[in-house]
């Protein structure tokens, strides 16, 4: 899959929010769940089934990686972005920025 090209389909909102959550810092599952809800002002509330389904796909595609938190009091797996994941997220941000710029040009009220 060619990163940043038109062959990369647009990311769904939950996947984008998960990647954005991990872009800030590595997180474990519950932390991602809460962060996504907070980022979207409660609009996107992931169930654990949806979250781990997405995490599984992102792991398979090597966009994120899993590691064991060292400072946690109990064994807890955390997730972080891989370089490939960061590049895809960056490409998506560029795409969205382009769309936003286009929208502001075309959809904003024109002066008479």
């Amino acid at each position: 899959m060619k990163i940043g090209s038109s062959s990369t389909p647009p990311l769904s909102e939950p996947v984008l929010l998960i990647l954005l959550s991990l872009a800030e810092q590595p997180r474990h599952g519950y932390s991602i769940l809460k962060d996504v809800e907070e980022m979207s002002d409660g609009r996107v509330v992931l169930s654990t089934g949806t979250l781990y389904g997405a995490l599984g796909r992102l792991l398979d595609d090597r966009w994120i990686e899993r590691f064991e938190e060292q400072d946690a009091s109990r064994d807890r797996q955390a997730y972080r972005l891989t370089p490939k994941g960061k590049a895809i997220l960056q490409a998506e941000v560029v795409r969205l920025r382009h769309l936003t710029r286009l929208a502001s040009l075309r959809a904003s009220p024109k002066e008479a």
């Binding site: 062959s7 389909p9 992931l46 169930s47 654990t48 089934g49 389904g53 599984g56 796909r57």
Partner: peptide, 29 residues
């Protein structure tokens, strides 16, 4: 309600993903 319905859907997706039989190119939407 959200969790259990999400879990059922997630299970269906995971099973379908495991059986990936009909590979199709990423561009063929």
């Amino acid at each position: 309600i959200r969790e259990f319905s999400g879990l059922a859907l997630g299970a269906v997706r995971a099973q379908a993903r495991r059986s990936q039989v009909q590979e199709q190119p990423a561009t063929s939407f």
